[in-house]
């Protein structure tokens, strides 16, 4: 009986999120457009996440380089270090880690903010004020995460590669020019493009889950905490699932 209830809840959740996405597309393209709120959300999602994304990216690049060196040295391929690190970072690590950080920071923030707005009747107040709360709160947030994630991911790429440069130079000695030449020789558009495209989907998923959980929050302050928590868990899981699908598609298209 309990298992059946779990399955039912799971299917309800899937149905709820699907309806939510359908409503996003329905309302998102109709006027009135909330540009001012969209810019504000882009600022919060993009600019305000930059320090955290930047620090993480820098450490990631540095650590990956330091950790990879011994193995490459074993095979006498130390000179391949910048190439290996750059491909790993650009193709996989940087977009996924950026998305996970945003799922934690932005997804939980949206879940909690919208959840508390729901339980304190602010969303109802908005509706009574003649504002479509879905358009004002949800559409703007989902578009902001969808647009900002690729930008953050690309900045994360650059910062992590800089971390990689410092990592290479801790034990070795490579010039700035040579390092970047090797990096750009290693990376092609077929590495960069799939990585950028998948970050749009990461951003969309984070926005949808964060907003869905917050918008339909219930049971008072306890519900707000739950919304924030489940927004992070589901968004993080979705990032990995989207990544898995993206890898399969890229592989099928022969872009590996």
């Amino acid at each position: 009986m309990k298992n059946w209830l779990n399955i039912k809840n799971f299917l309800d959740e899937i149905g709820g999120i699907s309806n939510f996405i359908a409503r996003f597309f329905q309302e998102g393209f109709k006027p009135r457009y909330e540009f001012a709120e969209l810019i504000r959300q882009c600022y919060w999602v993009g600019y305000k996440s930059l320090p955290l994304v930047g620090i993480t990216a820098f450490i990631m690049g540095l650590v990956l380089t330091i950790q990879s060196r011994p193995t490459l040295v074993k095979f006498g391929a130390e000179s391949m270090l910048p190439m290996m690190v750059s491909v790993s970072l650009v193709r996989e690590i940087s977009p996924v880690i950026t998305a996970l950080i945003c799922a934690g920071k932005v997804g939980s923030g949206m879940g909690a903010e919208l959840g508390s707005m729901r339980v304190t009747e602010q969303i109802d107040a908005m509706e009574v004020s003649g504002t479509n709360p879905f358009k004002y709160l949800i559409v703007t947030r989902i578009i902001a995460t969808t647009l900002m994630l690729p930008i953050l991911s690309n900045l994360s790429n650059a910062i992590s590669l800089y971390g990689g440069y410092l990592g290479v130079n801790i034990r070795g000695n490579i010039s700035w020019h040579l390092y970047w030449t090797q990096v750009f020789n290693a990376i092609s558009y077929s590495d960069l493009l799939p990585s950028v495209i998948k970050t749009f989907f990461f951003g969309f998923a984070i926005g949808v889950v964060g907003c869905y959980k917050g918008y339909f929050s219930s049971k008072g302050t306890e519900g707000v905490g739950r919304s924030a928590n489940s927004a992070v868990v589901i968004a993080s899981l979705l990032v990995f699932i989207i990544d898995l699908i993206a890898v399969q598609i890229v592989d099928l298209l022969g872009l590996t």
Partner: peptide, 29 residues
């Protein structure tokens, strides 16, 4: 709804806005 005012039990003031912006919001709409 322009002709009806609603005072919510929890006040429902927008936390992220100043008092000026709270009052401006329905006007702007």
């Amino acid at each position: 709804r322009q002709r009806i005012g609603f005072l919510f039990q929890s006040n429902a003031l927008y936390d992220s806005m100043t008092i000026r912006e709270n009052l401006e919001f329905p006007l702007r709409r």
